[in-house]
């Protein structure tokens, strides 16, 4: 057996495998895109109840917004959700923060006019199951984000000591994860609020 035979064999094999993968990709591509859009819409509707359609913006490094035309992106995104009449319901932002274990990545709904956080959902986390991961499931904790004042820096306080509208009532036994959520929101809003206010009219129009 000489090397020419081996190279020829592997070459033909790679060609066939490659063609197979491309073929399946072509067949499933459309369906995958639809599915991913569905996943995105589901999470947006969960955060902005009553949403009908959305515009996806990419936040450019300069701090400017650009309408996202599809495909993968590594930049942070801003989703603007509108009701049937085209009125802006609010924006949804992506944010990350270091939690108790690894990065917590989350999405939250923000109302630019009222300057309040109106919803919060965890996209990915590795917090301790049964304790820290309650930040994604605990109904009492998530109730914090129905109307959380964001005009003042948001902080998480110990369970049962919430006094001000910008404070998050932490989960008992998961204070570290709860505080991470507080930092996540505070940092992201501090960074994004100017961008949103600068582009407010554009976001309302949806272009």
């Amino acid at each position: 057996m000489n090397s020419v035979v081996m190279i020829r064999f592997l070459g033909v094999l790679s060609l066939i495998c490659g063609m197979l993968i491309v073929g399946v990709n072509i067949v499933t591509h459309g369906r995958i895109q639809i599915n991913q859009e569905t996943i995105l819409r589901e999470s947006l509707i969960q955060l902005l109840p009553g949403m009908d359609h959305q515009t996806v913006y990419v936040i450019e490094p300069s701090g400017e917004l650009a309408v996202h035309t599809g495909g993968e992106t590594t930049a942070k995104r801003l989703f603007a959700g509108y009701d049937k009449g085209g009125k802006l319901l609010g924006v949804v932002l992506e944010a990350n923060e270091r939690g108790y274990a690894d990065i917590i990545s989350a999405m939250y709904a923000y109302s630019p006019s009222a300057k309040t956080v109106t919803g919060f959902t965890v996209v990915e986390m590795r917090e301790t199951p049964g304790l820290g991961n309650k930040i994604g499931t605990d109904p009492d904790f998530l109730a914090n984000f129905k109307a959380l004042d964001a005009s003042h820096p948001i902080t998480a306080v110990k369970h049962g000591t919430k006094k001000n509208p910008w404070e998050i009532d932490a989960i008992s036994g998961a204070t570290i994860s709860s505080r991470a959520v507080g930092r996540l929101l505070a940092n992201s809003i501090r960074e994004m609020e100017p961008v949103i206010q600068r582009n407010k009219e554009r976001i309302e129009r949806g272009n």
Binding site: I21, N25, T28, I32, Q36, T38, I39
Partner: peptide
Amino acid sequence: YLVKAISI
């Protein structure tokens, strides 16, 4: 690809 396409 198939899993992505078939079941969310």
